[in-house]
């Protein structure tokens, strides 16, 4: 057992914080439903932060830490698939990566756009293709889920897809770890934003954070968020399918418990685009349905643990 971060990991996280400093808050007067930055994306890729999984001494565990840390930014960065799934397939695959399963046609996919790499899991086979305008319905300007998204219109024919000699289960495990890591970071940031708001906002002559009804629900959110972090790290270290499914399940359970509360505690301010809370919580909402949602991840966990 060794549950502390290594010096290398601490350094990498510090470097991310430094690099991402200009992106740590929302640009003034910005009222976007989703925030993205090509420059941030480029800097992260060039800095090698999304490639740490393949580096000795760092590995998927560090990749999960990177994903968790980046998710705390108000800007949506495609990091989970690139940092955790791409190394299993081909480290040179063009970003962003989109992960889809059978039945994705007709649905909105995070980060989908012409030029994106779509990784497709179907009947235990892992393949990929580069999305073009034949596959993608023009992205909506306003995403309801605070991620850039577009609808997958069609799949290319089988021969147009590249196949990988990797088990779909292994990809699923990494996908689940990425999902849990991203949700952990989103919850941590959303909790922090909510804590700041309720500590400053006064009603009845005192900060609303002094009302126990809010305090206890926020404390529960802390417990769930802490749990999500540890489950993510354990799964990233063991890469055990059961651990990964439990991590994804817990992340989705926790997300479901906290997102509504966080908005609730901001009152009407929580309905505005001016306050950035939605930039985290509405990404969390998108993650709630991923990989089939809680039920599917729970079944996967039960299968892995008890057969």
């Amino acid at each position: 057992m060794e549950l502390a971060l290594s010096d290398d990991q601490i350094q990498i996280l510090d470097a991310i914080d430094t690099l991402a400093k200009p992106y740590a808050s929302v640009p003034i007067h910005d009222i976007s439903f989703a925030l993205t930055s090509e420059e941030l994306d480029r800097e992260l890729a060039e800095g090698g932060f999304l490639d740490v999984a393949a580096m000795e001494e760092l590995g998927p565990e560090t990749a999960a830490l990177v994903v968790e840390r980046l998710a705390r930014l108000p800007f949506a960065v495609e990091a989970a698939a690139s940092a955790l799934v791409r190394p299993l397939l081909d480290p040179e695959l063009p970003r962003p990566l989109c992960l889809i399963q059978d039945g994705a046609v007709g649905r909105a996919v995070r980060f989908l756009k012409p030029g994106a790499t779509v990784v497709y899991l179907c009947d235990g086979v892992v393949c990929s293709f580069t999305a073009n305008t034949d596959h993608v319905v023009e992205a909506q300007d306003e995403s309801i889920f605070a991620y850039p998204m577009a609808v997958l219109k069609a799949l290319p024919s089988e021969i147009e897809m590249r196949k990988y000699n990797v088990s779909a289960d292994e990809v699923l495990t990494q996908w689940r770890i990425g999902l849990a890591a991203e949700a952990s970071g989103l919850m941590a940031a959303a909790l922090a934003a909510t804590v700041t708001y309720v500590s400053e906002r006064k009603q009845f002559g005192r900060p609303i954070a002094t009302f126990q009804a809010l305090r206890h629900r926020l404390a529960e959110a802390q417990v769930l968020t802490n749990g999500a972090y540890w489950m993510t790290m354990k799964a990233a270290v063991t890469r055990d399918p059961g651990d990964a499914a439990l991590a994804a399940l817990h992340a989705q359970e926790a997300a479901r418990r906290v997102t509504y509360d966080f908005h609730q505690f901001l009152g009407a301010m929580g309905m505005t685009l001016e306050h950035p809370l939605h930039l985290w919580t509405y990404r969390l909402k998108a993650l709630m349905s991923e990989l089939g949602g809680r039920g599917a991840n729970a079944l996967a966990a039960a299968e892995a643990i008890w057969g």
Binding site: L3, G227, M233, L246, R294, G295, N297, L299, A301, E303
Partner: peptide
């Protein structure tokens, strides 16, 4: 099975949170 897994997610988050303290 779903309910069993939900319970396991909580026993294991609790385990990890306790181990972090140990």
């Amino acid at each position: 099975k779903i309910e069993a897994a939900r319970a396991a997610a909580l026993t294991e988050t609790a385990r990890n949170a306790c181990y972090a303290i140990v």
